[in-house]
Each structure stands twice: as C-alpha cells, then as structure tokens.
C-alpha cells in the first residue's frame, strides 16, 4: 500500500529567501509523525506548502496518490487535509459555535464525522462556552478551538503546527491526550514540534528538518537512541 502523504523535493521561498530546499518525506495512514527542528528550520513552511498557503516553487506533494501541489488551499482542505496553524488564528469576533460552523463540511465515508456535540465530548471546556467570542478565550482554549474547528471539516490528515507552544504544562498534557484520541479515531497526524519529550509521548515516527532539508527520519525510539542526531539538530 502506498503512503498517504508523499512529499518529494519540495522547494519554497519567502521572497528571495530559500526556505525549503528539497524537503522529502512520506506519511503512512494512521500514524503520528513529528516534524522536528529548531526555530526557522522550515517546519511551519512545510505545513503551509502542503496546504497550498505557500506556493511550492518545485517538487511534488501527493495525497492518496493524487498531486495536490499548485492547488488552492480550499481544494486541498476539501480533499481531507485539516490545518491547525501555530498562531491559532481563531476568528476572535465570532463565537465558538460560529468558529466551528465556518469550517463545516459534509460528512465523508473515509473519515470520522464530527459534529459540534461530538467535539464538545472531546473538548468539554468548549461545550461550556459555546457563545463566547473567540477573542475572549484563553490561549489554551483557543488552541483547543482551532483543533476542533479544523476537525469540523472531517479531515483524514491533520497538520498540527506546534500544538504545545506557549501552553501551560497541564494544557500540554491535555493536548497530548487529544492527539492520541485523534489517532485512536484513525486520523493521520503530522505535528511540528521542538519538544522531544512531547513528541515522544504522541508520535510514532519523527522527521528532523534543518535549514530546509530533512536530515533524519526514523521511529521515535531510533531518534531517542541517536544521541548524535539529537545534539546536532535539536539541542539549543
């Protein structure tokens, strides 16, 4: 069986800065892959390029065997890829329910179907503040709302950009549980992460990116056992 997501020789620029320089990796169905690397290594850009938010300058992105590079973000989203940006980007003037409704898509046979009620079981906090404006929520609540919002599109693959960043430790733990719950639903999850401990808790495999190039791919255990790779690419 072929991989769910295949990224080959992906190039991307911001202006003239060459951010992604031939990024290549693949994801299997149902796994959680942690894309790791320091600040500015190209983690967020990789996600944006998959999503079509940063137009790839070269290389290919294939989802379920179908080329998606060069397509518009909304088309990519409708194919079943959900994107959760690192800076949350909740619609601050819209209520929780309205935030969810923006992303609502019809149910699909090959992915779990989410309704607000089902999401409120996963995120009980959100259920208690349905009419609260997105801008009036705490950072952790906003992070949960962005994930819930993305799930409303019934994705098969979820891109989670730095889900643990800037959250209180107790919320980070909750976040880890959420990711594992999504995995249990059968979703495939790509997270970008700097924190090895957090990644170790949720991910099956890791890919390490540095200066726009993938330097390592392997299982979490392989990474934990590889002191050289860790100190070269991850330690600050």
């Amino acid at each position: 069986m072929s991989a769910m997501l295949e990224i080959a020789a992906l190039d991307a620029y911001y202006g003239r800065a060459h951010i992604l320089q031939g990024v290549t990796f693949a994801m299997n169905r149902g796994e959680v892959l942690a894309l790791m690397g320091r600040n500015g290594a190209g983690k967020s850009t990789t996600m944006k390029a998959i999503m079509g938010l940063v137009p790839p300058a070269g290389g290919t992105v294939s989802f379920e065997g179908q080329r998606i590079d060069g397509r518009e973000p909304f088309e990519i989203a409708r194919l079943g890829i959900g994107y959760v940006p690192e800076d949350r980007r909740v619609f601050s003037e819209l209520s929780v329910m309205e935030n969810l409704s923006v992303a609502q898509r019809p149910a699909r046979s090959d992915a779990p179907h989410w309704t607000p009620e089902r999401l409120f079981q996963l995120f009980p906090n959100l259920g208690r503040m349905r009419d609260r404006a997105g801008g009036a929520m705490s950072g952790g609540e906003q992070q949960m709302l962005t994930i819930a919002r993305t799930l409303m599109g019934n994705p098969r693959l979820v891109l989670l950009d730095e889900p643990s960043e800037g959250l209180a430790p107790v919320i980070v733990e909750e976040m880890a549980k959420t990711i594992l719950a999504l995995k249990a639903e059968g979703l495939t999850v790509l997270i970008s992460e700097q924190n090895l401990h957090f990644a170790g808790n949720v991910a099956d495999r890791a890919a390490i990116i540095e200066k726009g190039v993938i330097r390592f791919t392997g299982t979490m255990d392989e990474l934990k056992g590889n002191e050289a790779v860790r100190s070269q690419y991850l330690s600050v």
């Binding site: 518009e72 973000p73 989203a77 619609f91 003037e93 819209l94 923006v102 993305t150 599109g153």
Partner: peptide, 14 residues
C-alpha cells in the same frame, strides 16, 4: 465576518 478577519484561514478551512 470570518473572512473579514482572516481570509487566508477561511480558505484553509475549505
């Protein structure tokens, strides 16, 4: 209203 605030995100949500 959502697009008024962040139209790129609205697109990324399908």
């Amino acid at each position: 209203r959502a697009a008024t605030q962040d139209r790129e995100m609205v697109g990324a949500l399908g």
